[in-house]
Each structure stands twice: as structure tokens, then as C-alpha cells.
């Protein structure tokens, strides 16, 4: 197929940009696409949502024993004022003796991790991962223009999943990652394992 026709169909050229002989082909493609669109239903058939929710209900509820459902059900429990005071007094005693759980815990140290990726033709490279809630908030840099992008990110110890975003749209897996994790939907995330800093 002519590259100009491909470019028109990609939205990169207008009909007027094409020579006359290709305009006719472009119109045929537009008609074909309209035909495919017209041959499709406008939306889901009536009652599909009900059937989906019923299937979910039977799949989920049957697996959960009735007593667990009963325990998890929110309910109001009337408490006499005297009983409430007794509970509060008991809590005060426990907190005084044992301290607030985690109240004097040392904050977990973050570890700087260097991310590097080779992307010679990239204009921008961003790092996304569970530590950025998969938002492209970390920009990698290629200060010397050699096509190798890098950046240091403070991470909590543990296993993290990440990917690189090239030019704001291409999500790529790190070819040099320590491991890979199937995200469950046909793609793979890169894995980095961060060890805790040894004792100070």
C-alpha cells in the first residue's frame, strides 16, 4: 500500500495532501471503515450487567462461608454509657503499660537505587513503578547525550515493580532488570529487589 495513503489513514495527511488517484482509494477506505462501524451494535445487550453481577455474586459469595459473611456485616451495637467508660478505662491502662504500638518505631530507611536504560532516539525517559503509583513523576536524564538515561530514586527495602516510559507513551520493560513479573494481563514488569541498609 502507498505510504501516503497509510499516512492519510494514520491522520498525518489530509485528503487534499493526496494526489487525485489516491483520494479515490482513501474514500474507499473511509467507506469500508464506516461499514464496519455501522455493522456493530451500539452497546451491550439489555441485562448484560445483571448477568455479570449475578455471575460475580455466585462466584464470590459461594466461596465465603455464611458465618464469615455474618461476622463481616457492619452493624450497630448499643453500648450502655457505663460499659463505654469501662472500655475506655481499660484501653487507657493498656496504652500506659505497653505504649502506643509502633509509636517509637524507627522510620524505615530508604535506599538510593540507580536506574539506567539505553534509549538513543528518545526525547524523554520516565521511570514509573509501584513506588510512584505508576505515575510518570520521575524523569531520567541523559546529560551527555549518549543515549544512556539514568536517575537515582530512594526506595524502601523490598521488591518493587517498574517500567520505563519513552517519549511519554512507549512503556518498555527494562532489558537488564534483575527479574520480571507477569502483571497478569499479558505484559511483564521489571523487578528490582532493595535490601535494607545494614545496621548504623
Amino acid at each position: 500500500m502507498d505510504n501516503r495513503l497509510q499516512a492519510y489513514l494514520d491522520g498525518e495527511l489530509t485528503l487534499e495532501d493526496l494526489p487525485l488517484e489516491l483520494r479515490a482509494r482513501a474514500r474507499e477506505w473511509n467507506a469500508l471503515i464506516d461499514d464496519i462501524r455501522d455493522a456493530s451494535p451500539a452497546g451491550a445487550p439489555l441485562g448484560l450487567d445483571t448477568r455479570i453481577l449475578a455471575a460475580l455474586d455466585s462466584a464470590g459469595r459461594r466461596a465465603r462461608p455464611a458465618w464469615i459473611t455474618w461476622l463481616l456485616r457492619p452493624r450497630l451495637v448499643p453500648v450502655p454509657p457505663a460499659a463505654a467508660l469501662a472500655v475506655l478505662a481499660g484501653l487507657f491502662l493498656i496504652v500506659t503499660v505497653l505504649g502506643v504500638p509502633g509509636g517509637d518505631a524507627i522510620p524505615e530507611s530508604r535506599v538510593y537505587v540507580q536506574f539506567v536504560v539505553e534509549a538513543p532516539s528518545a526525547e524523554t525517559v520516565q521511570l514509573v513503578g509501584d513506588f510512584t503509583e505508576w505515575q510518570p513523576t520521575v524523569e531520567l536524564e541523559d546529560a551527555d547525550g549518549d543515549g544512556v538515561w539514568s536517575g537515582r530514586v530512594p526506595l524502601l527495602p523490598g521488591v518493587h515493580e517498574y517500567m520505563f516510559v519513552i517519549d511519554g507513551s512507549d512503556w518498555v520493560t527494562d532489558p537488564n532488570a534483575a527479574g520480571y513479573q507477569d502483571d497478569g494481563f499479558g505484559q511483564k514488569n521489571s523487578i528490582v529487589a532493595v535490601s535494607p541498609v545494614s545496621g548504623t
Binding site: 456493530s40 451500539a42 445487550p45 448484560l48 450487567d49 455479570i52
Partner: peptide
């Protein structure tokens, strides 16, 4: 489900 069933179904 109601919001996205049409998109997915089409």
C-alpha cells in the same frame, strides 16, 4: 460494570 460494559462489548 454499567459504565464500561458498552465499550468492552462493542
Amino acid at each position: 460494570v454499567r459504565r464500561y460494559q458498552d465499550l468492552l462489548y462493542r
